[in-house]
Amino acid sequence: MGFSDADLQAIWLTLRLASLVTVLLLLIGTPIAWWLARTHSRWKGPVGAVVALPLVLPPTVLGFYLLLAMGPNGPVGQFTQSLGIGLLPFTFWGLVVASVFYSMPFVVQPIQNAIEALGERPLEVAATLRAGPWDRFFSVVLPLAKPGFFTAAILGFAHTVGEFGVVLMIGGNIPGATRVVSVQIYDYVEAMEYGQAHWLAASMVIFSFLVLLALYTLNPNQRKF
């Protein structure tokens, strides 16, 4: 049997989505993690809780509120319409925005933990050596917290690949735009085409296993968690 053209299209779309989301999450998540790790602000608790929400909320709840928020009457929808880019649901970029929310804790938390584990000392030393803030980040924090970033990138990527409920709620199942692998598998099962479903589902299991295997064995510090 093997993969159909529609399967390949879904796989390619999923990889594109997950890669883009991972890059965006590292860019957005790093400053948030940095702030959460070092601040003594009374906002630390609330911000940390908001970031962690997708860990506990059912994806349908998140998807439903995203659908309302990004719809024509929602605040995000009115904002995107006023910018002239239209509405986000049923588009690739809608999935990107949703996935960034959904996978955020998987990226922020490992980076935050890694930075917290560094402590103040290396940064103070660097500061006495006249390293500026950017210099301190790139030559001290980044190398020392590398395992945290590695874990964050892999978990963010893998979690986006495995996303289903949110995509189902705001995707609209459009081939090439929002029909990702998990939705394609769901369709096969619903249509009782179990043979095709097995191909994709088994590939997904193997892929996820290899990703996690890489995470547990290749992590630069060999740090187990």
Partner: peptide
Amino acid sequence: KLVQGENIAQTYQFVSTGNA
């Protein structure tokens, strides 16, 4: 212009929220 709901309940949701 077609967007697909996984079932008729979700299709209704797309329309009732104005997204379609």
